[in-house]
Structure formats: structure tokens, C-alpha cells
């Protein structure tokens, strides 16, 4: 920071009388709620990590380092593919056997397991519902109510579609 004055004197020392008058002048304040009005128009910055990433990207593009970065990424990708293809070629027989086992035995076994589980679950639910099942009259009443509910829904939907969009809004 720089010095208080170029002469090393304060305003009061430079012209005491005038300074006394000027210093006594009112400090005006803006109206109530000024701070909130300002804050309503201020855009606060994004989180630091996002800004750093953006800045790094901008910097890379501006300084031409983007090409270097892209080059390194491309080379890395190429090496990865080369390694993967080499691995596949090296262990082709084992990989083929593994795939055959998966589609011949593993997958059907998994499918059977899942279907068996679902069937068992449905059976359990059926047993529970059967044990708790209401009498014939109650069942008929429930069915009737469900039907009436369905009719009410259909009517409501029809009315909604029929009404002009302004009324719907």
C-alpha cells in the first residue's frame, strides 16, 4: 500500500480550518433496503472447483496447450485399445470358452433362478390374499366401487379435455 500522503501530512495538517468544515459535513446514506436491492442484482461466482476447471480449460485453449492435452488423451486411448486387443488375441481360446459357458449354462441358469423366485413370490402373495379374502358381498362392493371410481376418472378426464385451455389453466 502507498503512503497516506505524498507530503506525509494528513488533510487536517494541510489546511486545518477548511478540513474542520469539510470533515463535519454530513455522510449521506442511501435509502432503506439498499443492500438487498444491490444483492438482488449480483451474480455470485460458481464454486471454486468449477471456476478452476473452467479457467484451466480456457487457459489451455488460449495458450495452445489444448492440443497437447488432446494429443496425450488420444495417445492414452490408443494405448488402452492396443492393450485390450492384444489381451483378447492372446487369450482368445479362454475368452471363447467363457462366453460359451455364459450363454450355454450361466445365462439359462440365471433366468431359471429369477423366474422361480418370481413364481414363488406370486404364490406367496396369492396365499396371503386368499387367507385374508373378504366375503363374497364385500368383494362385490369393492368391485362396484372400483368401477364407479373408474367412471369418475373417465368423466373428469373428458371434462378436462373438453374445456378450453384458458379455463384449464
Amino acid at each position: 500500500m502507498r503512503n497516506m500522503t505524498v507530503y506525509g501530512r494528513t488533510p487536517a495538517e494541510e489546511d486545518p480550518e477548511l478540513h474542520r468544515h469539510l470533515e463535519a459535513l454530513t455522510q449521506f446514506s442511501p435509502g432503506v433496503g439498499f443492500e438487498n436491492r444491490v444483492m438482488a442484482r449480483v451474480y455470485r461466482p460458481a464454486p471454486a472447483w468449477l471456476r478452476t476447471a473452467r479457467a484451466a480449460g480456457r487457459d489451455a485453449v488460449e495458450t495452445g496447450r489444448a492440443w497437447t492435452v488432446l494429443g496425450v488423451l488420444s495417445a492414452g486411448s490408443l494405448v488402452s485399445w492396443a492393450v485390450a486387443v492384444g489381451f483378447i488375441l492372446e487369450y482368445a481360446a479362454q475368452i471363447g470358452a467363457g462366453l460359451r459357458w455364459f450363454f450355454g449354462t450361466g445365462l439359462p441358469y440365471a433366468w431359471e433362478t429369477v423366474t422361480a423366485y418370481v413364481a414363488e413370490l406370486l404364490a406367496t402373495v396369492y396365499t396371503l390374499v386368499s387367507a385374508w379374502a373378504p366375503s363374497g358381498g364385500a368383494l362385490a362392493a369393492a368391485a362396484a366401487l372400483s368401477f364407479l371410481g373408474l367412471v369418475a376418472c373417465a368423466w373428469g378426464l373428458y371434462r378436462t379435455m373438453e374445456a378450453p385451455s384458458a379455463v384449464r389453466a
Binding site: 446514506s29 439498499f34 444483492m39 449480483v42 455470485r44 460458481a46 471454486a48
Partner: peptide
Amino acid sequence: ACEGAEVAYRELVRRYQRPVFSLIYR
């Protein structure tokens, strides 16, 4: 404020609203 702290923004407004307003008003 650069880190996005709202209190810091408000503090800057509080510190300078009177001198800045007085200067502009005069």
C-alpha cells in the same frame, strides 16, 4: 467474496455504501 460468500458481498456494500453514495450525491 470471490469464493462466493454472500456475507462478504454484503460486508463490502455495508462498508462503502455511505462514502460512495455521499460522493455521488454531492
